[in-house]
Amino acid sequence: DLSALRVEEVQNVINAMQKILECPICLELIKEPVSTKCDHIFCKFCMLKLLNQKKGPSQCPLCKNDITKRSLQESTRFSQLVEELLKIICAFQLDTGLEYANSYNFAKKENNSPEHLKDEVSIIQSMGYRNRAKRLLQSEPENPSLQETSLSVQLSNLGTVRTLRTKQRIQPQRTSVYIELGSDSSEDTVNKATYCSVGDQELLQITPQGTRDEISLDSAKKAACEFSETDVTNTEHHQPSNNDLNTTEKRAAERHPEKYQGSSVSNLHVEPCGTNTHASSLQHENSSLLLTKDRMNVEKAEF
């Protein structure tokens, strides 16, 4: 173990290094160091905050020279020094078990990766560091076993998940096959086929009936047209017969005018059967003409 005197000496050296690497504005270890034209180094955030307070150039807090945003430059070497100082402080805390008085939040800088452990060898070769390295080497064999167990647990979990997924996939297939086998029997399929065939026959029977009705309507229309044509021909046949009657009536009127007047009046009210309204109107006109002729003949006879 380190003596108290040596611990104090190391602590004083760390404090001196820390004062050199402090920012003059925030009085902390410089984060993202930036250098000016006057070779003074500050935190990048502190300098941008200072420049944004005034429009135009501002003055350096140490030498009062003008500073602009374009004049600022990043210093990589200074950032490396800060990183190495942080590593020294971490090693000091691990070796002594004491917390550094002016320690900052170094938890963000710590890294437990194997590459980081290899890099620590180049920091300080001390008894405390050696003991700590031995402890780490002793704890390393235990870690692979834990990793193997965790991997086995994960693989077993994956296997159970896969088996569950396969079961879920197989179950719908089985149910679907069961439904297909038990849903419709052979008799049901035959009945469905016969039902479809009967429906098709009914459709075939319905369509000819409609065509037959249309044919019957067409035949009825044709018969009505033929009947009207026969009526017209009958009226045409009746007209010459009426003319013959008129000639006979004229002759009778010349011989017996008194008797014919009474008979002509009675004939006005008689309509021949089986004739249309057109034929009756023609008869009325003929009878009126005959009456006028008879009157003329009677007057001539009187004179």
Rank of each mutant, 00 (worst) to 15 (best):
Ser216Trp: 01
Thr233Leu: 12
Gln53Thr: 03
Val10Leu: 01
Arg169Gly: 13
Ser71Phe: 04
Asp218Val: 06
Leu155Ala: 15
Leu21Val: 12
Ser150Thr: 10
Val10Gly: 01
Glu254His: 10
Ser281Cys: 04
Glu74Gly: 04
Ile20Leu: 08
Leu204Ala: 13
Cys38Phe: 00
Leu50Asn: 03
Leu158Cys: 03
Gly159Pro: 14
Phe45Asn: 15
Val82Thr: 10
Leu158Pro: 12
Asp231Asn: 12
Leu155Lys: 15
Ser266Arg: 11
Gly262Phe: 15
Asn234Val: 02
Met127His: 10
Gln209Lys: 09
His278Glu: 14
His269Arg: 01
Arg70Thr: 04
Met127Cys: 04
Ser176Phe: 00
Leu86Ala: 11
Tyr100Asn: 10
Asp66Val: 10
Pro208Cys: 02
Pro33Lys: 00
Ser186Gln: 13
Glu120Pro: 11
Pro208Tyr: 12
Lys49Glu: 08
Ser280Cys: 10
Val161Pro: 11
Lys44Gln: 04
Cys43Leu: 00
Arg251Asn: 12
Arg251Leu: 08
Ile89Glu: 01
Lys192Ala: 08
Arg70Cys: 09
Met17Arg: 00
Arg212Gly: 11
Glu148Ala: 08
Val161Trp: 13
Gln209Asp: 09
Glu22Met: 01
Val190Phe: 05
Arg162Ala: 08
Thr230Val: 15
Asp188Met: 11
Leu50Arg: 00
Asn52Gly: 07
Tyr100Phe: 12
Glu271His: 12
Phe42His: 00
Met127Ile: 12
Leu158Tyr: 10
Lys221Ser: 02
Gln138Ala: 14
Glu9His: 07
Glu148His: 00
Leu268Phe: 08
Thr189Asn: 07
Ser152Arg: 12
Ser156Pro: 14
Asp66Gln: 11
Gln201Leu: 12
Ala301Asn: 15
Glu28Pro: 00
Phe42Ile: 02
Lys259Trp: 14
Ile25Pro: 00
Asn276Asp: 06
Ser186Tyr: 03
Lys222Ser: 08
Leu27Ala: 01
Val121His: 13
Leu158Lys: 15
Leu290Val: 11
Ile20Val: 07
Val121Leu: 08
Leu50Trp: 15
Thr163Tyr: 04
Cys43Gly: 01
Gly56Trp: 03
Pro141Met: 07
Ile20Glu: 15
Asp95Ser: 00
Gly274Thr: 09
Leu164Tyr: 11
Leu158Arg: 05
Ser197Ala: 02
Gln73Ser: 02
Leu21Thr: 06
Ser186Ala: 11
Lys250Pro: 14
Pro61Thr: 02
Cys38Leu: 00
Tyr260Gly: 09
Ala220Ser: 02
Ile30His: 07
Glu249Phe: 12
Phe45His: 14
Gly210Ser: 05
Leu86Asn: 06
Glu22Trp: 02
Ile88Asn: 00
Cys38Gly: 00
Ile89Val: 05
Pro57Asp: 06
Asp200Gly: 05
Gln261Ala: 14
Asp244Ser: 03
Thr247Phe: 11
Lys118His: 12
Ile30Asn: 03
Leu268Lys: 08
Lys293Tyr: 01
Cys23Thr: 00
Ser152Val: 08
Thr247Arg: 12
Ala16Trp: 04
Lys300Arg: 09
Ile30Gly: 02
Glu120Gly: 12
His256Tyr: 13
Val34Gly: 01
Ala220Leu: 15
Val10Ala: 03
Leu146Pro: 08
Leu155Val: 08
Asn157Asp: 08
Gln138Lys: 08
Asp39Ser: 08
Gly262Ala: 09
Leu94Phe: 07
Asp244Arg: 12
Gln93Gly: 06
Lys259Phe: 03
Leu155Ser: 13
Gln283Lys: 09
Leu136Gly: 12
Leu117Thr: 15
Ser79Ile: 07
Thr211Glu: 08
Gln80Leu: 12
Leu136Ile: 08
Glu140Ser: 06
Cys46Arg: 01
Ala220Arg: 12
Leu29Gln: 02
Arg77Asn: 14
Arg212His: 05
Gly56Ala: 02
Arg130Asp: 08
Ser228Thr: 13
Gln201Glu: 06
Pro240Ala: 12
Ser126Pro: 14
Cys90Phe: 13
Glu28His: 01
Val265Asp: 13
Ser287Cys: 06
Lys69Glu: 03
Ile20Trp: 05
Ser185His: 03
Ala301Asp: 15
Gln261Ser: 13
Lys250Asp: 09
Lys118Arg: 06
Ile179Phe: 15
Pro208His: 12
Leu164Ala: 03
Glu74Ile: 15
Gly128Arg: 14
Leu203Ala: 04
Leu117Pro: 01
Lys222Met: 12
Phe78His: 15
Glu8Met: 10
Arg70Met: 03
Ile41Arg: 03
Glu84Gly: 13
Asn143Ile: 06
Leu85Tyr: 14
Lys250Cys: 05
Gly56Thr: 13
Arg162Gly: 06
Gln93Tyr: 03
Leu29Ala: 07
Ile25Leu: 01
Ser58Phe: 01
Cys38Asn: 00
Gln261Asp: 03
Ala223Asp: 01
Glu187Arg: 13
Glu214Leu: 03
Cys43His: 02
Cys26Met: 00
Thr230Gln: 06
Glu8His: 15
Leu85His: 05
Lys37Phe: 08
Gly274Ser: 04
Arg130Val: 11
Glu249Lys: 05
Cys273Glu: 10
Ile67Arg: 00
Arg6Thr: 05
Ala133Tyr: 13
Ile89Met: 12
Asp184Tyr: 02
Gln73Lys: 11
Arg135Trp: 06
Thr36His: 00
Asp213Asn: 01
Glu9Arg: 03
Val265Ile: 07
Leu50Ser: 02
Phe106Cys: 14
Pro272Ser: 14
Asn246Ile: 08
Leu50Pro: 01
Gly159Phe: 04
Gln18Asp: 04
Ser145Val: 14
Ser126Ala: 12
Tyr195Cys: 10
Thr275Ala: 13
Thr247Cys: 03
Ala16Glu: 14
Leu62Phe: 00
Lys55Ile: 06
Ile67Thr: 04
Glu28Trp: 00
Glu28Asn: 02
Leu268Gly: 15
Ile215Gly: 13
Thr96Ile: 09
Cys225Trp: 15
Glu202Leu: 05
Ser156Met: 05
Ser281Tyr: 07
Thr166Phe: 02
Thr68Tyr: 07
Thr149Ala: 06
Glu142Asp: 11
Thr275Ser: 12
Arg132Ser: 11
Ser3Cys: 07
Val121Tyr: 07
Asp66Ile: 02
Glu214Lys: 09
Ser126Arg: 11
Arg174Tyr: 08
Lys222Tyr: 11
Arg77Trp: 15
Ala252Glu: 03
Ile30Thr: 11
Val121Ile: 10
Thr166Lys: 11
Thr166Val: 00
Ser35Leu: 15
Gln154Tyr: 08
Leu62Val: 02
Ile67Ser: 01
Leu155Arg: 10
Lys37Gly: 14
Ser113Ala: 09
Ile215Ser: 06
Tyr104Phe: 10
Ile206Glu: 07
Ser103Arg: 08
Ile25Lys: 02
Leu94His: 09
Phe45Leu: 10
Lys222Arg: 11
Arg295His: 11
Gly274Leu: 12
Cys90Thr: 14
His269Tyr: 09
Leu268Met: 04
Lys44His: 00
Cys43Arg: 00
Ser288Val: 06
Glu202Pro: 10
Val265Gly: 06
Leu282Ala: 09
Ser145Cys: 12
Val7His: 01
Phe42Arg: 01
Ala101Val: 06
Gln125His: 09
Pro208Gly: 01
Asn143Lys: 14
Asn276Met: 06
Leu203Thr: 14
Ser139Gly: 11
Gln125Phe: 03
Lys87Leu: 07
Glu32Thr: 03
Glu148Val: 07
Thr211Asp: 07
Glu258Val: 10
Cys43Trp: 00
Ser75Cys: 15
Ser288Asn: 10
Ser126Cys: 05
Leu2Ile: 00
Glu142Ala: 14
Asp213Thr: 10
Thr230Ile: 02
Val270Ser: 04
Asn112Arg: 12
Glu9Pro: 00
Leu81Ile: 13
Lys37Glu: 05
Pro172Ser: 01
Phe45Cys: 13
Thr248Asn: 10
Lys69Met: 04
Asn131Ala: 08
Glu84Ala: 03
Ala223Cys: 10
